[in-house]
């Protein structure tokens, strides 16, 4: 591709750039693997969160208040 003149050329720059990556390929593998593992861990942690089923602000604030009371009483 020659010099960029319009948006299409600009997008072409991205496509050619990603295609032409040599040292970037192992990096892309790392990034993808990392995102998958991190998402799995985040999803696992989120599934354990006792607040996940609380949808309204009232439910959430009630839960927080009760938790604070518990900590204060311990």
């Amino acid at each position: 591709m020659d010099k960029i003149r319009n948006v299409r050329d600009f997008l072409q720059m991205y496509i050619e750039g990603f295609k032409g990556l040599t040292w970037g390929k192992p990096l892309w593998n790392i990034i993808i693997a990392k995102i998958i593992v991190l998402s799995a861990i985040a999803a696992f942690l989120a599934s354990k969160n006792p607040m996940k089923n609380l949808h309204t602000n009232n439910q959430k604030s009630e839960y927080i208040f009760n938790e604070f009371v518990k900590i204060n009483n311990n």
């Binding site: 970037g24 990096l27 790392i30 991190l38 985040a42």
Partner: peptide
């Protein structure tokens, strides 16, 4: 590239491990 996304997990942790804090 290697560092990218590890910052995002920190922000997720605010919601998962520190939900009371986030609220």
């Amino acid at each position: 590239a290697v560092g990218v996304a590890s910052g995002i997990i920190l922000e997720f942790e605010f919601g998962t491990n520190w939900a009371k804090y986030s609220w």
